[in-house]
Computed example of a mutant assay.
Amino acid sequence: MKVVTFGEIMLRLSTPGFSRFVQAASFDVTFGGGEANVAVALAAYGVESYFVTKLPAHEIGQAAVNHLRRFGVRTDYIVRGGERIGIYFLETGASQRPSKVIYDRAHAAITTLQQGEIDWDRVFEGAQWFHWTGITPALGERVRAELRRALEAARRARVTVSVDLNYRAKLWSVEEAQQVMRALMDYVDICIGNEEDAEKSLGVRPQGVDVEAGKLDEAAYAELALELKRTFGFQAVAITLRESYSASINGWSALMVDNRDCQTPYRSRRYQIHLVDRVGSGDAFAGGLIYGLLMKNNTREALEFAVAASCLKQTIPGDFNLVSAGEVEKLMHGSGSGRVER
């Protein structure tokens, strides 16, 4: 089973513990980025997982490649060149203080991609799935053009395509996002997002939704999923549902509608999570859903796997979801009590 993802991997510099930027004397170093996070999650489940990007040929670029390889991701199609790797700084919030992210990613190597540097027909040989996020086309015209070439090649290869809408206000405006993203939906089979992503990226506004209220109107989210499916003709739509009680305690579940087992919107089991690191949780959900749709008997099982996987991610520091399929299954079918395993 071969899955391909395409996007930017960044150097992540996070303050130790819950320190603020202004008090930090050092930073914890790792790597992360939407599509890379999905690739790592899939590799952990035993999938042949490929991440495609462009990275500098210097030592920091090589460190990023090595980091991916450490967790089983195939790096065969990574292009080397450009001068720098993007960076993001993370301050982890607690209780009523939210987490903060500062980007330093201008002129990153991926933004220098030239037509012909990636042979997409070769990349998709033997592939079953291609995943991308709304962050990638927000990186500029060259990346946007490369993404379209990838999507056209995926269509030629009859590869299933999924997108996580992932709107990022610090990268582009609502107007630009909608102009670009709506056109790219013609290539998409499976759409993943939340209420903000749907509104900002695609212009589909949910009614009666207030994520900060501590409770969810399930009917409003169900209608949002159905509206996205009707408007763009997706095979399936998955909406993540986060109840933000504070920066430390969240409720977590998801809802899905598709052409197979969930023609009526289905909501997953709900988990209450004491957050360790929520960055990458949506990517963990996407990775779990891709695995579930490829390997499970039905859509409902696939959704439950994705929600359990992303629940576990939020207990792990760093961007990557470093859990096995067996650990996810255990949470799916168990109590989630967190008792010590001896």
Rank of each mutant, 00 (worst) to 15 (best):
R158N: 12
R149V: 07
R155G: 10
R149N: 10
N166K: 05
A157R: 11
V180H: 00
L171E: 01
A153R: 01
A153S: 10
R156H: 15
R149Y: 09
V159L: 12
Y167E: 06
S162D: 06
W172T: 04
E152Q: 12
L151V: 10
R155E: 08
N166Q: 07
A157K: 04
V180D: 00
S173P: 02
V161P: 03
A150K: 05
A157L: 07
K170Y: 03
E152T: 12
L165A: 15
L151T: 02
V163E: 00
A153I: 07
A150E: 09
E152F: 04
R158V: 14
R158W: 04
A169M: 15
R182Y: 13
D164P: 10
E152L: 14
L171S: 05
L151F: 09
A177F: 02
V161E: 01
A169Y: 14
N166F: 06
V163R: 00
W172S: 01
A169L: 09
A183Y: 11
R149G: 05
R148D: 01
R149E: 07
T160E: 09
W172N: 02
Q179R: 12
R155C: 10
T160Y: 08
Y167C: 06
Y167N: 06
W172E: 03
L151N: 03
E152I: 11
Q178Y: 11
L147W: 08
D164K: 02
E152H: 13
V159N: 03
R158A: 15
R156T: 14
A150N: 11
Q179W: 06
S162Q: 10
S173H: 01
E175K: 10
E175F: 12
V159T: 08
V174K: 01
E152V: 12
R149P: 08
A157I: 03
L171M: 11
R149M: 05
A153H: 03
L147F: 08
S173M: 05
A153V: 14
L171G: 04
R156I: 15
R156V: 15
R168V: 05
A150P: 11
R155P: 07
R149T: 03
S173Q: 06
A169F: 13
E176L: 15
D164R: 03
Q178I: 13
S162V: 07
S173C: 00
